[in-house]
Design a protein around this nucleic acid. Structure first.
Lengths: 133, 133
DNA sequence: CAGTATCCCGACGGATACTG
DNA sequence: CAGTATCCGTCGGGATACTG
């Protein structure tokens, strides 16, 4: 991100130097899509390589068939996941990442890393925040 | 639920090398929290420095007072945002990032950058995915 | 195996009105 | 200015049953 260096550039201080208002729109779009309950998890899981429907279902604990299907369809439509169906006797379908989602994968992994590092701290903060009332 | 009876291959490549099942839990916790509709946006906005309640309200287009209050309270409780109230005649309250959210900010910025770079591609993918009926 | 279809509940979150 | 309180609709998403 170019932020050039600069403490609040331009005139006075604008209402929002960090995010141009024009960007707000699709930032929300993307967040709504991958910020949902399962997308990032699935993308992270696909890092290892292609996975089948049931593989995903086993490895994303708690996901329902409905949500798995829906999420995969969304991701496929967005070009973040590739669906490959093999015409075999027991049907086989594999899902894998695309070039587009490779960059996203990197970020998702960072987010997971951050969560791993700080979830405990956050939990502590949360419980200790009670007494205020 | 543990189906301990399962193969659970342990050797070779397990069902999930990317995310150990134990981590799934708090990954979901974090995603549920910051993956909501407004948290990341607010964190990104606070990069520039402290902002007041109304500043945030202006710069997060479409957010309601209710959601702004709620989100800020959540973030404050989690230790991701600091709330500072000045006892002045017109009340003034400022919100800013904490050391904890600094690392998260970096990731959020990357995500925003990624969204900026690829939202168009994603939109195209989405529209061109229709004909499949 | 890899899904789809249907039902249904709870929460997320917007609109509005009120307060310290 | 900086919130809280209440009402209420939408819809994300789980449970269950069925299909190619």
């Amino acid at each position: 991100m170019e932020h050039a260096a600069g403490p609040v550039p331009a005139a006075g201080f604008g209402p929002c130097a960090a995010i141009p208002a024009e960007h707000m729109d699709f930032i929300r779009q993307i967040l709504d899509r991958i910020g949902d309950k399962w997308s990032m998890l699935i993308i992270a899981l696909l890092e290892d390589g292609p996975m089948r429907y049931t593989d995903l279902q086993r490895n994303v604990p708690g996901i329902s068939q409905r949500m798995l299907s829906l999420t995969l369809r969304q991701l496929t439509q967005d070009g973040l996941v590739t669906r490959t169906a093999y015409a075999e006797v027991p049907p086989r379908v594999e899902y894998s990442l695309t070039h587009l989602s490779q960059g996203l994968l990197d970020i998702v992994k960072q987010l997971i890393g951050w969560a791993s590092d700080h979830h405990e701290e956050i939990r502590q903060n949360r419980t200790r925040a009670e007494p205020t009332h």
